[in-house]
Design a protein around this nucleic acid. Structure first.
Lengths: 208, 208
DNA sequence: TCCAAAACAGGGTGATTGTCCTGTTTGTAA
DNA sequence: TTACAAACAGGACAATCACCCTGTTTTGGA
């Protein structure tokens, strides 16, 4: 029952936002009475914090951190995620935006607890990418790229692209930004070996 | 009196968001009665649309479009704006985010009228940057950079960086993203001439 | 001066909000 | 079975919300 509430809240916060999601709507959608909801989440804020900690963080983990860690390189991981998300959005026909970004905009100025919870997720996201770049560099790839800089730009470009995609209801801007991002201080071509591998990985991932 | 309401609404929408700004608060802050507010803006939505059309669009125009047009090149214009905004945020000590981005997240899924009004501002912003790149190319600079791609990445990086800056209450990420953005397919050095001019312009602008 | 329209005042209304409170059921150890 | 706390039901609560309505004042052209 707690899970049912979290499911509905996650979905509604994503689609309508925090303030526009009334507890009455959530109760109706989840088939839960006021007493049950109040038992698990004393306040609306507690519910939102649970959604952030248990769902939004997990979504970032699953969508970004794990694929990047599993990728052969940071750059290829970033490319994979951008294209997977763009493909998913184009398939479902509408764009609801990045859950983290959506809540961050609405809540980070409203309440300090919200803000730090969301900032932690952003920090973990960036660090995962930066760590991957460092790992690439330790194994000889990815020349002089500054890991933290690359991570910040990647996360910013993704977040901003999702903002525009949500506003224009068109995921195309994600692909444009990825193309631009790919031209950030590209590492030396290494006799075309890296390029060949990248193509192979891509073909596998986009089937998904 | 209409202007007083718009002033207060712009400020409150930026600081607290649309849903969290009650008309009662706005009336009190503006020193306006309910009758007066209702006379100029029949509904809260009408007020928000006026804020978007008359204030948010103007802010983007003033902060981004005009400086980029006035800059010696698109790249230098982008650099100037990023640094000016970062300096301003660091000086005032807190980050409230980009007005366009804030409202876009909260309203673009809630109402189609909001969405297209906000999307139009994004489109104008991107086009101004892309046009500047094209102008650079017409006068011999800025090699093979794709204008629309560069504009999309720039706007996305800025919007996303502002999201993170708002969430972490730290404008430093803006500078990180600018540094990364500067490494996007940099044009050939042209015997160091462009580099020298860029430094000169920068020194002048950062005083501000 | 006159008058019509715009501008403004200010209370009232119904609906909705988040929260709380009192019972009832369910699960679990002794 | 008994004891007891967690889980849940469901209505009640005050507060707040956006909006509307009836007057009054101000404005500007004839």
């Amino acid at each position: 029952m707690r899970r049912r509430v979290l499911d509905v809240a996650e979905e509604s916060f994503q689609a309508r936002g925090y303030h526009a999601s009334s507890l009455g709507d959530l109760m109706a959608a989840a088939g839960v009475t006021g007493g049950a909801l109040h038992h698990h989440f004393p306040t609306k804020k507690a519910l939102a914090l649970a959604v952030i900690d248990e769902r939004v963080a997990a979504a970032v983990q699953q969508t970004w951190i794990e694929p990047v860690r599993a990728a052969p390189s940071a750059r290829e991981g970033v490319r994979t995620v951008f294209e997977a998300v763009a493909a998913e959005l184009e398939q479902q026909g509408y764009v609801r935006g990045c859950p983290l970004n959506n809540l961050a905009h609405e809540l980070s100025l409203a309440d300090a607890d919200f803000r730090v919870a969301l900032a932690d997720i952003f920090a973990g996201w960036r660090q995962a990418i930066a760590d991957k770049v460092r790992s690439d560099q330790a194994s000889g790839g990815e020349g002089g790229t500054d890991p933290d800089r690359f991570a910040a730009l990647t996360v910013a470009a993704y977040s901003g692209a999702m903002s525009m995609a949500k506003t224009s209801q068109n995921a195309g801007v994600l692909r444009e930004c990825l193309a631009g991002l790919d031209r950030v201080q590209p590492p030396p071509s290494q006799n075309g070996l890296a390029a060949k591998r990248r193509r192979r990985v891509l073909r596998r991932q986009t089937i998904r």
